[in-house]
Nucleic acid binder design. Sequence first.
DNA 1: TAGGCCATCTGGTCCT
DNA 2: AGGACCAGATGGCCTA
Length: 151
Amino acid sequence: MKTCKAGHLDSGIESDVQCRSGPGCVVKCSSERMENAAKRRLAANARERRRMQGLNTAFDRLRKVVPQWGQDKKLSKYETLQMALSYIMALTRILAEAERYSTEREWISLHCEHFHPESYHHYTGQKMAMDSDPYAQRIFNYHPEHFQIAN
DNA sequence: TAGGCCATCTGGTCCT
DNA sequence: AGGACCAGATGGCCTA
């Protein structure tokens, strides 16, 4: 295919200069330009789709490591981020406390005092699946007010 | 049927 | 110039 050598159509500014490709160039070049623009748009759409798919993959990976407390419905993106934030904060506090109490025994006995499984509910208000979820068992051996949905 | 969530398209902006 | 990122618009699907 013949290309417009003058480049005046691609610049976005119309010019009176006659294109060397001949009198039919204006039509040919402009349709070619539209074709290129359409191709670029399609390519950009595909890239955007891939980018969003990558983002969704990352969300799925995050969902797997964040506690869901027996919820059958998967967390929305917003809920996933909120839960991840709360989860990280809870773990951070646990680590900070573990550092504060010199021995593991001392730390464990501190948290066992507060552990009442019946009183633990996840943030939607439903009862947690403590029996089935090992994460729940481990993390919620922790004072309940330390793990709340961030707002 | 309304509302929530999501995927996709699109145009704008920033960065390399 | 082209790619990455972002936000708004739109339409589809699902659920209460």
